[in-house]
Design a binder for these strands. Structure first.
Lengths: 319, 319
DNA sequence: ACATCTTATGCTCAAGGAGAGTATAAATGG
DNA sequence: CCATTTATACTCTCCTTGAGCATAAGATGT
């Protein structure tokens, strides 16, 4: 075993065989609603076995999605690889490695005659939509249940730590809401037995949190995808993958707000977009609108080549 | 196939078996040098088959590294999963999925009697160390070769695009150096046939760029790890995983500089660290030093619980 | 004792960015 | 014409960031 630093011989490769699956979080935004492609009546993300006839995972996913939807996939990014023991049920059976991807498209690109549907992603994570302020059921329902869970910790110190974690992730006790903590919130609810997928006993004290469940760990994978996308839109111009060719600045803003799950300051949003020169006017104006007509813009694809954006948080020395 | 949106039957799972490998980028910083654990005389990253007796990939990696080094692993993060067709040589043979991880430790924690060594990561990526300014060989050797490669493109437009890409990633033509583009730089050199691992013809016009090669795609994986870590230190307090229990602010600064490959402004660095309340004084002073003795600090582990840092780049509305 | 070197540490300043609000323009439906 | 709705242009303030100056506190050599 030249590849291992271990001196004793490793297990033979043949005893280590697994199957590889792809799981895709395919996102679109339509009418201010972020949607994901689902199958099986919205209870699962599209997934399938990885065909090794492709050059790489990325090309395999693209080909696969294209076959499903009849349209090419814009932006693609790997999310996470899971290899949980109990995933295929029998611990002795063939194990499965699931490689998840995030992909961005537009809903109208979906072809006909497929099983796939588009489901609003806030159906699965109602607490993540804070555009109209924090949903009432957080304070009314989720927070008390979390408090109960926190108090169930064995020691006062652990109780305090548990509650602090709840308060931070859900923005309780006058803390701000952090829209990027999607996965942390989901995992917290899981630990507190508020997620049906956890498969634990749900008695009267800890019924499920609102939100539609999914097969296996698919809702966790979706949470990972949402979190990644919410982080990404802040430093990469990926929103445009979800927009039509031409759009108004307000439409663009609504898409960002839909993804982030919170509102942005209109004037400052425009300033940000314009000073970064991300868009250019098409010359045309939006039709069929209420109020003053807005200019139509298109994405300047050139910026992808021009820039290699990356924010600094280090006090770099320029000398 | 309930899990697939595809209507036609998918290939049977049995025809899809693969082997799963873990590849680790284990990082330590000693005396201002970032190091990675290597095997086989520094020509490969530690790797081995994944044992499905573990609950998850993360725990498998931790257990495995602990067995190798005799010490627990601090911070662990998944990097990327590769499944290249040609990886195991024969396209018809058993395919391999490689799941790579980034782990942070300290060099002195390595146990005795193992094959592993610590190698400086700039041995593999000499151009990434810009602490003493851009290394002379970039302008003298790499840039001209990239120019040649750019000019070899079939059309003037493509030539310009190629060169723009070179200039952006390597900070040429008076552009600033972006330390996070580690992977982009490596891939660019690969495309330009300046990387021995590419296995293409290296004639007189395109000899290899400086830097030690590695087995298979290990240097690419290392590049991924370096890039991830360089990005991470800017918004998460992970540097402390690489520091001893007590340290001076200058030592901390040197570690950050070692990782980032560039110098930071001393006074501003202190201001940043202190205003974020990341550290607290131990009360003791550093001994055996030149110049005025520095206070010793320790990491405030409490911040990990207190905060859930995440920078905003959206003009969020607070109302 | 004193000069000098080296690192530590405190403080100021200017430019730019981010959050928030005011004001005006241009359309539609009564 | 007026109310309503959305678009768009500015302004203002506070905070952050990059940069530099000044002083402190040790060691070492003369």
């Amino acid at each position: 075993m030249a590849r291992s630093p271990q001196k004793k011989t490793s297990a033979p490769v043949s005893g280590n065989a697994v199957t590889a699956d792809l799981v895709a979080v395919l996102v679109a935004v339509t009418d201010g609603t972020p949607k994901i492609m689902t199958i099986a009546g919205g209870s699962a993300l599209p997934s399938g076995p990885f065909e090794f006839t492709h050059r790489s995972l990325q090309t395999a996913l693209r080909a696969w999605v294209e076959a499903q939807t009849g349209h090419p996939l814009g932006y693609v990014e790997q999310l996470y690889t899971f290899a949980d023991r109990g995933r295929s049920g029998d611990a002795k059976g063939p194990h499965s490695v699931s490689i998840s991807y995030l992909g961005l498209t537009r809903e109208d690109r979906v072809g006909e005659g497929f099983e796939a549907h588009w489901s609003g992603w806030y159906d699965y994570f109602p607490w993540e939509d804070q555009r109209a302020g924090a949903p009432a059921f957080i304070a009314r329902s989720i927070a008390p249940k979390l408090k109960t869970w926190a108090k169930a910790a064995p020691s006062p110190t652990l109780q305090r730590e548990r509650w602090q974690r709840c308060a931070i992730t859900f923005g309780l006790d006058d803390r701000g809401w952090n829209e990027e903590l999607v996965l942390q919130r989901y995992e917290l609810l899981w630990e507190a037995s508020l997620i049906p997928e956890a498969g634990r006993a749900h008695d009267r004290e800890a019924p499920a949190a609102p939100g539609k469940p999914m097969t296996a760990d698919h809702r966790r994978i979706l949470a990972t995808g949402i979190a990644r996308l919410r982080a990404k839109i802040k430093y990469r111009p990926v929103v445009f993958e979800l927009m039509p060719a031409e759009f108004t600045l307000l439409q663009l803003q609504r898409s960002v707000e839909a993804l982030a799950g919170r509102l942005v300051h209109k004037q400052n949003f425009r300033r940000l977009i314009e000073q970064q020169e991300l868009v250019e006017e098409t010359g045309a104006m939006a039709a069929d609108t209420v109020g003053r007509p807005a200019k139509l813009f298109r994405f300047r694809h050139a910026v992808l080549a021009e820039r290699a954006v990356a924010g600094t948080k280090l006090p770099l020395s320029r000398t």
